[in-house]
Amino acid sequence: MLFQPAIIALMLASGLAALLVLASVPFAWTVVRRWNLADGSEAQLRMERRTYLVATLLKIVMAAELAALVLFVFNADRMATLFTGAMCAVGTLKVDPWGFPTLYLKLAVFFLAGCWLVLDHVDNRGWDYPLIRVKYAALILLAPVLVGSAVVQGAYFMGLRADVITSCCSTLFSGGGVTVTSNSVASLPHGLALSLLAGSLAAVLASGAVVLRWRRCGWLHALLSVAAFVIGMSAIISTISVYVYEMPHHHCPFCILKREYGHIGYALYVPLFVGTVCGLGAGIAGWAGRRPSLSTMAPLVARSLAAWSVGGYALFGLVALWLIERSHLILFEVVP
């Protein structure tokens, strides 16, 4: 265990978030079983009022998890000096087996909480709360993820001992790698990665345009958003980061967040994350539009989410393009 302000803050945040959601589970279960709007009893009224609390808490949890995600990566990078051989966040995360699972779980929590908030937002537009059971069932499913994320993070931080020899990004991401996935991601050919990226961005923008124009196919947009997220991340690791570092064998998704590179990573990740979470939300809102009481409101929500999503992906694409354009590294010879 390392006593560090950022670590204490992270443990505090995820512990409290898990506790809050866990504490809402019995209530969620009551809603799933007992919800009945036609009932004018005081118990039903109390239940309705309690939903405001849960929604507010979830908003706070979501905000905290978002902040925690940034803080976690930032801190992992900063702690690299404490571990022999660790040169950036990758090294710190490889110090014990819980590092990367923590990161993945944090990502999952962020996206799931985002989806839940969209669900809540849409449901609140329908006069009969048509999705309330779905929503609270989803909350019950969300709880173990949050608890898991807190526990895994705890295990990770507890297991940290300064000065453990770890692999760093240069050995992890270029040859002789430790993780298979990261390696195969890093060894993705640049041309393939960029064309996949261009293709998926085009697809996701097109499907977003369909949602915007005809207010349908939200599910397709959500699916393509997930694909674009995965491909976007792979492209960052395999190719875009290389352009940023201007070193052909340096593939690291974290170093681009560093000050040395002008924190440029945030300009890539923030739009990508916004695009993805809004794309998922657009899918959820589109699906909710099938309920009669939401048939007018949900497509509107889907539309504005799709607009945000399209904006996010477009910005991501532009930033990526600009990074490639300004780089001194040439990976492709232009034949005149």
């Binding site: 709007l37 036609a38 009932d39 004018g40 009224l45 309705e48 009022r49 609140n124 006069w127 009969d128 709360y129």
Partner: peptide
Amino acid sequence: ISSLPERF
């Protein structure tokens, strides 16, 4: 309007 939630 007798079974509308408070919000509406």
